[in-house]
Write a protein that binds this DNA or RNA. Structure first.
Lengths: 350, 350
DNA sequence: CTGAAAGCGCTTACAG
DNA sequence: CTGAAAGCGCTTACAG
């Protein structure tokens, strides 16, 4: 309802605690307590106050309250890019977890630009945010996180680690995960396997590459450096990498991709070139996005536990806010291989 | 930098304006003015103050400021679902537009639940947000928007209209857009065309269906009711609709889809059934997501101006905040047909 | 060009 | 169970 006494289109007199107090002949302290269901206020008084507040359309001023209590009810979330469905799935589970504690969340993309990330942390500090969940931008120095914590903004990391920052980290076991995918391809009979996408500049990138290398070495397979095509992390880039991949000397029979987006883009590119992904070339993804199951062919990929990551990160942060001590530790979610139709035996004899 | 004088891991004494004022022997008024680059303060004084503030790691308290000024620097954005790339693209352009005015934005999904949307608007009111950009949930009564505006929260709508709400609306000309797609199919020789996805409960849904119907009627083509498969709006749902579509009596030779997601899902389903989209069945999408161009086959679709929608909506809201009068009007972005490989002549003689 | 003082709208000890 | 008063950290007239 609009505020009582509002004239034609004009803003009414602002309704505040004292408006209610005056109308009911009680003090603002009593109103404040009543609205927050304090047992200190008599049941009848409380009901009268709450009913009146509702009737005249009172709006609680959180800025004023938070200035006094120094709790704002705001949590910041900053990731590389929300357009990436991997993060979008994480965000959804963060959202539903925070919702239950009536925390509002502010979202930002840093696009791996340190400056954008710093501006956002600064904004959170100025707003008096209660905490931040972040997938740190490439090159984030531990000091940035220490600074936030020292100024009363507890942090929890997702997806990527920052060496030297003593905060909880929730992410998948990336080395183990790409190991699963690579071993799956090897067990199908593939001997020449490409690794497509990703970067050495993030912990995730290094771990995933490591998992692939280790699996190849353990199987006694040679890895030619040019079989690795670093960089792509999007569908578009995967699509564009297809021609480069197909033109490779000693062309591999399979590609272990950085993530599902790259894998799907690559498959599209392979199909565009007249080859059949899953038959002519085997492809694995990473993340198991909702979309992986309906790709053509359905994508063999590694489930990365994004729902879990989001849920646990949010709940760890809430624990921190509520004063419970949360150990700075690496929580590794164990990935699982989901085999579908994009992988098969190599076509040619090896 | 951490605050000066911080002990081992302990939170330092909070640094505020008066800390700086005391240290420099000036008043808080002068410090406040200086930090905001007021010309009222002598250049030298200003520099001394700003330098000192930086040195001791002063953090501006926006809650306190906004309590005083009643401007919070916060803008709310609420959409159906940020995981939908259509909205994700809009959000990006909103973000870059707001960034330039140093406004922070708070994001929320309402998943077409009125209750979630109301909770969010309430939160914005409590935080004293400066405005809201929304794609209204199905069934949003105009009163909800009027209430927000009367309480000092100006609103701008995107993508969907709410009858009776006197606020600016930015969206594509949906009827015209599906008309483009349908006419394209007709001109290729298709006579039986299906409409897949969408709902009559939103203005967008009604408009898109209307555009399809009008085009069919103008071409003197019959439309069998069961050729319409309402509902799907996601890739998954489009995928699942494929079998229903393929089993249709008098099966249409083409499908005009609600959006790109449905179209891509449908094409995947068609391919899974052993038919070739673009050859056996023509498919059109809507939105022209980045992904449309790299789908297999590349998707013929209607560009919906999402970048434009986001940019203009944000800039209209900023104008409103700055006191410029913004007419409540429908801004229809004119869609464009982008022809690619998912459409062709009908295979069978008609 | 600078300072003293009031006030934004809450909550929290402290009395009673 | 309820009230009077101080204070959170800013900004804004108002004086000088």
């Amino acid at each position: 309802m609009p505020q009582s006494g509002a004239g034609e289109g004009e803003l009414a007199q602002k309704i505040k605690l004292s408006t209610i107090a005056d109308a009911l002949g009680v003090s603002t302290a009593t109103v404040s307590l009543a609205l927050r269901d304090s047992p200190l206020v008599a049941g009848l008084t409380r009901e009268r106050i709450k009913e009146h507040a509702r009737a005249i359309g009172y709006i609680y001023n959180r800025r004023a309250a938070s200035l006094r209590t120094s709790r704002s009810g705001i949590v910041g979330v900053v990731v590389h890019d929300i357009m990436n469905p991997f993060f979008a799935e994480i965000l959804r589970s963060i959202e539903s977890e925070l919702d239950r504690s009536r925390q509002t969340f502010i979202l930002s993309n840093h696009y791996d630009q340190l400056e954008k990330q710093r501006t956002f942390i600064d904004t959170l500090l100025q707003l008096g945010a209660d905490g931040v969940i972040m997938s740190p931008a490439i090159g984030t120095p531990p000091e940035d996180i220490v600074m936030a914590e020292e100024n009363g903004l507890p942090a929890v990391l997702i997806a990527r680690t920052v060496e030297g920052a003593e905060v909880p980290v929730f992410r998948g076991d990336d080395a183990y995960g790409t190991g699963l995918a690579t071993n799956h391809l090897i067990s199908l009979g593939h001997r020449r396997i490409s690794m497509i996408g990703g970067t050495d500049q993030t912990s995730t990138g290094r771990d995933r590459f490591q998992g692939y290398m280790t699996a190849m070495e353990n199987a006694g397979l040679e890895v030619k450096p040019h079989w690795r095509i670093p960089g792509p992390r999007t569908k578009q880039a995967g699509f564009e990498a297809a021609s480069q991949f197909l033109a490779l000397k000693d062309r591999p029979t399979a590609a272990c991709c950085w993530n599902d987006l790259v894998a799907i883009g690559l498959m599209n590119g392979i199909a565009r070139a007249g080859l059949v992904p899953g038959v002519d070339i085997s492809v694995t993804g990473y993340d198991d996005l909702e979309e992986a199951a309906i790709a053509t062919p359905a994508l063999t990929t590694v489930w990365n536990g994004q729902r879990e990551v989001g849920r646990r990160a949010a709940s760890a942060l809430l624990d921190k806010l509520n004063g419970q001590s949360v150990r700075p530790s690496q929580e590794l979610i164990r990935p699982e291989l989901h085999v579908r139709q994009s992988t098969g035996k190599p076509r040619e004899r090896v």
